[in-house]
Simulated assay, not measured.
Amino acid sequence: MVVVDVDAFDANADDLRRRAGGTPIRVASKSLRVPALIERALATPGYAGVLGYTLREALWLVANKVTADVVVAYPTVDRGAVRRLLADASARSAITLMVDDVAHLDLIDTCRKPGTHEDVRVALDIDAGLRLGRGHVGPKRSPLHDPAEVLGFARQVLARPGFRLVGVMTYEGQVAGVQDDVPGQRAKSAVIRRLKDASMTQLAERRGAIAAGLRPLVDLEFWNAGGSGSIAATAADAAVTEIAAGSGLLVPTLFDHYQSFAPRPAAFFGVPVVRRPSETIATVAGGGFIASGAAGKDRLPTPWAPDGLHLTNLEGAGEVQTPLSGPGAASLRVGDWVWFRHAKSGELAEHTNQVHLVSGEAVVSSVPTYRGLGLSW
């Protein structure tokens, strides 16, 4: 069973908006994957548009009137979806594709009917990583880094019939998605904060140079950047016109330890106790929802309630059963429920067909996830 505390969700939405300081927030659907929650966020003042993660998802969001503004955050090579986009004038006006390579443009052109050049909205994905000598800190995304590389590719896009350059994206994941105030890791956290400061300083200079170079070439509609963990720092950059956020609405465990904000966990999943192997162990059904990314303990779900429960070192979180130890285990009986928090936002929705929205002690509604609607992107 998955629940979302909508009071915490709304409080998080207000806090993200406060930290954005007037810069609009684009809702990152990957971090929600529940249409009703995407719509709830979009109904909040200060939020506008969706940052989607696949073109098929974007087409569905537009067709179902969830939004009329979707930027697809990752390049697509889905020819079937591209053909659907090319054939739908309404979708073409609402959806922006991400590109960082001529190969992306070539693929789109192969999907066109002979002799047609329908305008496709595109945005440039620019690497926002920190370079230290030959080293690179940050997500391994776009090959476009230096201003000269970006401007050269922009000129290629602008010279190509059938493409309309409308935006830019620079996602500083090494700032937005890395904890920097972890208990028991004081020295490491201090190093991470210094790297974040260096990254934002370097990035601000580079974004400024790129913006100045693009200005004579094209009148951009948006410059998307940042994430839930970097909102205030990203909003301070003059080049940025909007910030992406999604994880900060639900606050999974990977967002617990940031110096810039206090977390309000909003998403939980519950599983029942099915066994008592001993007086000190209680075993629940399933629960092995492991987050993506580099494998480690921080990707495991965390027992949340009742207090005093821990995963065991040998079994961790299992697909069909999860043994729990700790002082809280002794009081559990077969049939009792244990509540967990997932490590990464959005991915929990892939394990359930519906989410129960809770306010106070009441379930106010039960809504489908993408999976519950039979959708798989």
Rank of each mutant, 00 (worst) to 15 (best):
A89H: 03
R134A: 15
A148E: 15
C111D: 03
D125G: 12
E118K: 05
V70I: 12
D106H: 13
T67P: 05
R92A: 12
A89Q: 08
K140D: 15
L144M: 12
T76L: 02
I108M: 13
H136F: 14
R121W: 00
D146Y: 10
R141N: 14
L105G: 05
T96H: 01
D88W: 01
L105F: 00
T110M: 06
D78M: 11
V137G: 08
A148F: 01
A68H: 12
R79H: 11
A94G: 09
I95S: 10
V82I: 15
V72Q: 07
A94C: 14
E149M: 09
D78K: 05
L105P: 08
E118S: 11
A123W: 01
V82W: 01
L105Y: 00
D101S: 11
D109V: 02
V122N: 02
G138H: 06
V137D: 07
I95V: 15
R92E: 09
K65N: 14
C111N: 04
T76D: 05
H145Y: 15
I108L: 15
R79C: 14
T116P: 06
D106N: 10
N64K: 11
I126E: 04
G138D: 12
R112N: 06
L124E: 02
L124V: 11
D119G: 12
L132Y: 01
H136Q: 13
V72G: 09
A91W: 00
R83P: 08
Y74K: 13
V122W: 00
T110W: 02
G129Q: 11
D119Y: 00
P143L: 03
E118I: 04
D78S: 11
V120L: 04
A128L: 07
G138Y: 07
E149N: 00
D78V: 12
L85D: 09
R79T: 15
I126P: 05
N64P: 01
G135E: 14
D69G: 03
L86V: 10
L86R: 11
H117L: 06
R79P: 05
G133F: 03
V77G: 10
A148G: 09
A128C: 09
V122D: 04
H136W: 14
D100C: 10
T110L: 08
T96G: 06
L132T: 13
V137R: 09
T110P: 09
H145L: 14
R92V: 08
D125K: 02
I95F: 06
L124N: 02
L85Y: 04
R141S: 15
N64G: 07
D109H: 00
L105M: 02
L105N: 01
A128D: 04
S93C: 01
N64S: 14
R131H: 15
P147H: 05
K65A: 15
K140F: 10
G133C: 10
R121T: 06
A128T: 11
R92N: 11
G115R: 03
S142A: 12
R84M: 14
L86P: 13
P139L: 14
S93G: 13
D119T: 12
P143S: 11
A68W: 00
L85R: 06
H117I: 00
K140I: 13
V102P: 06
G129C: 13
